[in-house]
Amino acid sequence: MSEKYHKEVKNRMKHGKKYLDSVKLIDSTRLYDANEAVDLVLKTAKAKFDETVDLSVRLGVDPRHADQQVRGTVILPHGTGKTVRVLVFAKGDKAKEAEAAGAEYVGAEELVSKIQNENWFDYDVVIATPDMMGVVGRLGKVLGPKGLMPNPKAGTVTFDIEKAVKDVKAGKIEYRVDKNSIIHVPIGKVSFGQEKLVENLKTIMDAIIRSKPAAAKGQYLKSVVLSSTMGPGIKVNPQRIL
């Protein structure tokens, strides 16, 4: 038997019946518009839990060049559906401001020690006031690889702590192209329904398009794919999203 046949059998063995049934609903040769794609994501999300809907965008940029980096933040109109745990490095009035805004963890040097000594990562976003970055900088090698290091471009190094915390809680997400020229971001939960997911999708895609570097040449949006946590990928027509 052919190598292609064996490969297909092997791939089928990796997935359960629900996944294979979902695949049958999708035309892999077709690019769907935003509404059709989201509708298919909902139909193919068959897990017993509320699956996250993920967006993957392959860009026509070379992230090895500084002038072709794509990075930014955007507040999704309907949030991500995830409870975001926030850690804030601040002192004095700014620490009180962070607590009042709803940050789960607030502190200074003692939090640095806790992270370093206990390998503590029970939080999703780290925010810091600029005067604390000298202290937080010691955690660069620990927080950096996890994408948790505060950054002015992401709005997580700021004296406006109240706004920063509330924005994150409201559904602010950061998007950033990886070394493979792909942006991966969540756009919500299956339970949101079609209308809310489409609005979130259009919001993040508009932000990504607006972030196109001047140095990027040729086709910018190479491919756009939507999928639920346990579902198959669904190709979206980049020209029929906004």
Rank of each mutant, 00 (worst) to 15 (best):
6 H>K: 07
7 K>I: 03
10 K>H: 04
15 H>A: 07
15 H>K: 02
22 S>M: 13
23 V>I: 14
25 L>H: 13
26 I>R: 14
27 D>G: 14
40 L>E: 07
41 V>L: 10
45 A>W: 13
46 K>Q: 07
49 F>S: 03
50 D>A: 04
50 D>G: 06
58 R>D: 08
58 R>M: 14
58 R>K: 15
59 L>D: 04
60 G>L: 08
61 V>E: 00
64 R>A: 12
66 A>D: 15
68 Q>F: 02
69 Q>S: 12
70 V>I: 05
72 G>P: 00
79 G>E: 06
83 T>D: 11
86 V>S: 00
87 L>K: 04
88 V>Y: 06
89 F>K: 08
90 A>E: 03
90 A>G: 02
94 K>S: 11
96 K>M: 09
96 K>I: 11
97 E>R: 11
103 A>L: 09
105 Y>G: 07
108 A>M: 09
110 E>F: 02
112 V>D: 10
114 K>A: 08
115 I>W: 13
115 I>M: 07
116 Q>G: 13
117 N>C: 13
118 E>N: 14
125 V>S: 03
130 P>C: 10
131 D>G: 06
133 M>W: 01
133 M>G: 13
136 V>F: 07
140 G>T: 13
142 V>E: 05
143 L>K: 08
145 P>N: 04
153 K>T: 06
153 K>S: 11
154 A>D: 03
157 V>M: 09
158 T>M: 01
158 T>Q: 00
160 D>A: 04
161 I>S: 03
162 E>H: 15
162 E>G: 15
163 K>F: 14
166 K>L: 13
167 D>M: 08
168 V>Q: 02
170 A>H: 10
171 G>E: 09
172 K>R: 10
173 I>R: 10
175 Y>Q: 00
176 R>N: 13
178 D>E: 15
178 D>K: 12
178 D>S: 12
181 S>G: 12
182 I>Y: 13
184 H>D: 02
185 V>H: 01
186 P>S: 15
189 K>T: 02
193 G>Q: 11
193 G>K: 10
195 E>V: 05
197 L>K: 03
199 E>K: 01
199 E>P: 04
202 K>C: 03
202 K>S: 02
203 T>E: 03
205 M>E: 00
206 D>W: 12
208 I>F: 00
209 I>R: 14
226 L>S: 00
229 T>L: 08
232 P>Y: 01
237 N>V: 02
